[in-house]
Every structure is written in structure tokens, then in C-alpha cells.
Measured scan of single mutants.
Amino acid sequence: QAPETKIVDKSRVACDGGEGALGHPRVWLQIPEDTGWVECPYCDCKYVLKGSKADAL
């Protein structure tokens, strides 16, 4: 199944896999201003900063 994409309001987000005990260790991710998105290294969930150029795609 394809990784999930989430639109977020802040450039710093936490990801834990979203499945409680079945998820992964919580990691904090920083969305770079130049790209407007970041992917979780564990679950490949893509976080897109709302209003960024990546959000316009």
C-alpha cells in the first residue's frame, strides 16, 4: 500500500507510525523551507507543509 500523505500546519512534526504499539519509535521531523515536505525514515509517511510550494502540487 502507498505511504500516507499528511498536510500539516507546522514545519516540525512528530511521527510514531500512528498505530500505537504497532507503530515505530517517535521521531521529530523538520520540514525544509526549500522543499516544503519531509518523509518519515521509518514508515515513509510524507508530511507536506500547508501553503508551501509542495502543497500546491
Score class of each variant (00 low, 15 high):
residue 43 C to N: 00
residue 24 H to S: 03
residue 38 V to I: 11
residue 33 E to Q: 10
residue 14 A to H: 06
residue 23 G to M: 09
residue 9 D to Q: 08
residue 46 K to L: 08
residue 20 G to N: 03
residue 54 A to K: 03
residue 35 T to A: 07
residue 42 Y to L: 15
residue 44 D to I: 07
residue 53 K to N: 06
residue 31 I to W: 04
residue 50 K to A: 12
residue 4 E to N: 15
residue 43 C to Y: 03
residue 11 S to W: 07
residue 12 R to M: 10
residue 50 K to Q: 11
residue 5 T to L: 11
residue 53 K to V: 12
residue 28 W to D: 06
residue 40 C to I: 10
residue 17 G to Y: 05
residue 41 P to C: 10
residue 56 A to V: 14
residue 31 I to E: 03
residue 25 P to S: 05
residue 27 V to I: 11
residue 15 C to A: 00
residue 1 Q to Y: 13
residue 45 C to M: 15
residue 47 Y to I: 11
residue 51 G to M: 02
residue 35 T to P: 10
residue 16 D to C: 14
residue 45 C to I: 15
residue 35 T to Q: 09
residue 38 V to H: 02
residue 54 A to V: 05
residue 57 L to D: 10
residue 10 K to L: 08
residue 54 A to T: 05
residue 12 R to F: 13
residue 6 K to F: 04
residue 11 S to V: 12
residue 31 I to H: 04
residue 33 E to I: 11
residue 30 Q to W: 12
residue 43 C to R: 00
residue 12 R to Q: 11
residue 36 G to L: 01
residue 39 E to T: 12
residue 2 A to K: 13
residue 7 I to K: 06
residue 2 A to S: 11
residue 16 D to Y: 10
residue 38 V to S: 01
residue 37 W to V: 06
residue 22 L to V: 07
residue 5 T to N: 05
residue 31 I to G: 03
residue 8 V to M: 02
residue 26 R to Q: 06
residue 1 Q to H: 15
residue 36 G to A: 02
residue 19 E to S: 11
residue 53 K to P: 12
residue 6 K to R: 12
residue 52 S to H: 04
residue 14 A to S: 09
residue 48 V to C: 14
residue 46 K to M: 03
residue 41 P to D: 03
residue 8 V to Q: 02
residue 47 Y to F: 15
residue 15 C to T: 00
residue 50 K to V: 11
residue 23 G to P: 07
residue 40 C to Q: 11
residue 29 L to R: 01
residue 18 G to S: 06
residue 6 K to H: 15
residue 2 A to F: 13
residue 38 V to R: 01
residue 48 V to H: 07
residue 52 S to T: 05
residue 9 D to M: 09
residue 30 Q to T: 13
residue 49 L to W: 00
residue 51 G to N: 03
residue 36 G to K: 02
residue 2 A to H: 14
residue 42 Y to M: 14
residue 24 H to Q: 03
residue 47 Y to K: 08
residue 20 G to F: 05
residue 24 H to E: 03
residue 39 E to L: 13
residue 46 K to V: 15
residue 23 G to Y: 06
residue 50 K to M: 10
residue 55 D to A: 00
residue 45 C to K: 15
residue 39 E to N: 10
residue 28 W to K: 06
residue 22 L to M: 14
residue 32 P to Y: 05
residue 14 A to Y: 14
residue 7 I to W: 03
residue 29 L to W: 03
residue 46 K to A: 00
residue 5 T to Y: 15
residue 54 A to I: 07
residue 21 A to S: 09
residue 41 P to R: 02
residue 27 V to H: 03
residue 50 K to I: 10
residue 37 W to R: 01
residue 41 P to G: 02
residue 29 L to D: 02
residue 24 H to C: 01
residue 30 Q to L: 12
residue 11 S to E: 07
residue 46 K to D: 14
residue 20 G to E: 06
residue 10 K to Y: 12
residue 15 C to R: 00
residue 48 V to A: 02
residue 12 R to V: 13
residue 9 D to A: 08
residue 4 E to L: 15
residue 43 C to S: 01
residue 20 G to T: 04
residue 15 C to N: 00
residue 1 Q to G: 11
residue 24 H to L: 02
residue 29 L to Y: 02
residue 46 K to E: 13
residue 47 Y to S: 07
residue 23 G to Q: 12
residue 5 T to H: 11
residue 1 Q to F: 13
residue 13 V to L: 06
residue 8 V to S: 08
residue 19 E to F: 07
residue 7 I to G: 01
residue 51 G to C: 14
residue 20 G to K: 03
residue 40 C to D: 10
residue 34 D to V: 05
residue 9 D to Y: 13
residue 54 A to G: 06
residue 40 C to H: 11
residue 49 L to H: 13
residue 32 P to S: 06
residue 22 L to T: 10
residue 56 A to L: 13
residue 39 E to F: 14
residue 17 G to V: 04
residue 19 E to I: 10
residue 10 K to S: 13
residue 25 P to C: 09
residue 6 K to Q: 09
residue 25 P to V: 12
residue 12 R to D: 09
residue 7 I to Q: 02
residue 19 E to C: 15
residue 1 Q to D: 08
residue 51 G to S: 03
residue 50 K to F: 01
residue 24 H to G: 04
residue 37 W to N: 02
residue 55 D to R: 00
residue 33 E to P: 11
residue 10 K to I: 10
residue 16 D to H: 06
residue 46 K to F: 04
residue 39 E to R: 14
residue 27 V to Q: 02
residue 54 A to W: 00
residue 54 A to H: 05
residue 29 L to K: 02
residue 49 L to N: 13
residue 14 A to C: 13
residue 40 C to P: 09
residue 41 P to H: 07
residue 40 C to F: 13
residue 4 E to Y: 14
residue 3 P to R: 14
residue 20 G to C: 07
residue 53 K to C: 14
residue 21 A to V: 11
residue 45 C to T: 15
residue 44 D to L: 15
residue 8 V to H: 02
residue 3 P to H: 15
residue 51 G to Y: 01
residue 38 V to Q: 01
residue 43 C to H: 01
residue 22 L to P: 07
residue 26 R to G: 03
residue 16 D to K: 07
residue 14 A to Q: 07
residue 23 G to T: 08
residue 16 D to T: 12
residue 42 Y to S: 09
residue 13 V to A: 01
residue 16 D to W: 03
residue 11 S to F: 06
residue 3 P to D: 09
residue 47 Y to Q: 10
residue 49 L to M: 08
residue 33 E to G: 07
residue 30 Q to C: 13
residue 55 D to T: 00
residue 57 L to G: 13
residue 19 E to R: 11
residue 8 V to N: 02
residue 22 L to W: 08
residue 4 E to Q: 15
residue 30 Q to R: 07
residue 42 Y to P: 06
residue 17 G to L: 01
residue 27 V to C: 11
residue 30 Q to G: 03
residue 16 D to V: 11
residue 13 V to F: 08
residue 34 D to Y: 06
residue 22 L to S: 12
residue 47 Y to R: 04
residue 40 C to N: 09
residue 11 S to N: 09
residue 42 Y to K: 13
residue 8 V to P: 04
residue 11 S to R: 12
residue 38 V to A: 04
residue 33 E to S: 06
residue 2 A to I: 12
residue 8 V to A: 03
residue 21 A to D: 10
residue 53 K to D: 11
residue 6 K to L: 08
residue 33 E to L: 13
residue 34 D to H: 07
residue 53 K to S: 07
residue 7 I to T: 06
residue 2 A to M: 14
residue 35 T to E: 07
residue 14 A to E: 08
residue 55 D to N: 00
residue 43 C to F: 01
residue 29 L to T: 02
residue 28 W to G: 06
residue 16 D to L: 06
residue 30 Q to M: 12
residue 50 K to S: 11
residue 57 L to M: 12
residue 6 K to P: 01
residue 7 I to E: 05
residue 36 G to W: 02
residue 48 V to L: 08
residue 54 A to E: 08
residue 4 E to C: 15
residue 38 V to C: 00
residue 8 V to E: 02
residue 20 G to I: 02
residue 5 T to V: 15
